[in-house]
Amino acid sequence: MPGTRRLAFLAVLLTALALVPAGAHLLALPNKLAMGRDAYLAAQGAYAGWALAGVFPVSAILACLALALRQQHPPASPWPALLAALLLAAGLGVFFAWTFPANLATANWTTLPEEWEALRAQWEWSHAANAVLTLAAFCAVLRAALAPLPDLRPGWTPGGRPP
């Protein structure tokens, strides 16, 4: 099923692209938690326009779900691709529960209110959680992509028994 291989490639690629900004946030976390008010505000300015990267996890979720649907027949299993989609969706849940409210409270980090340090911790650690979820999703979709393809030739049935 060449279409399944192409879909698996797309799901892996989109999940990897979702991992790039998540990983960047995670790697920057120790340095950014140590920054003072002015330095942190300046550093946050580097993320202007990064909202466009939100297309990657959403697209990856859809590709992983489509892959899970294509992997319904043995020896493939839909579960790794489905798990990847669920992990990516959980990452979006983390974003909307903790990251987005911090963005709203700071006007996308153009102003810092009095409780900015608590917002910084919320923002940074929610991105760290998202990175871990996205890495786990990447591992799951990679497992799905490496699954053997079912043999759906005429006369073959799932389980390998002749009709």
Rank of each mutant, 00 (worst) to 15 (best):
G160C: 15
F9R: 09
L26F: 07
A129W: 02
P101N: 05
C139A: 14
A107P: 00
P162T: 02
P113K: 11
L119G: 07
N103R: 00
Q122C: 06
L135D: 06
R70N: 03
F100C: 00
L7S: 08
A22W: 01
C64M: 11
A11H: 11
R70G: 05
L19I: 00
A137E: 05
F138Q: 12
P162Q: 04
A137I: 02
F100H: 14
A81W: 01
G54N: 08
M35K: 05
G93L: 09
M1N: 09
A53E: 02
N31I: 01
G45H: 08
A66H: 09
L10R: 13
N103I: 10
S77P: 07
Q72S: 15
L86T: 03
P148H: 13
F95R: 01
A105K: 11
W116V: 00
T15C: 05
L27Q: 08
L87P: 02
P113W: 04
T99F: 07
M35F: 10
W156R: 15
L82E: 06
G54Y: 04
R6N: 09
L88F: 07
V94K: 08
A43M: 06
L92E: 12
L82K: 09
G155H: 00
E115F: 01
G93D: 08
F96N: 03
A129P: 00
G36R: 12
L13T: 13
W79P: 01
A128Q: 13
L133N: 04
F9I: 02
L67C: 01
L7C: 09
T99I: 14
A66V: 06
L82C: 10
N31F: 13
P75Y: 07
L26S: 08
L142P: 02
P148Y: 07
K32V: 13
F56R: 14
A137S: 14
T157N: 10
R153Y: 10
A22V: 01
A63M: 14
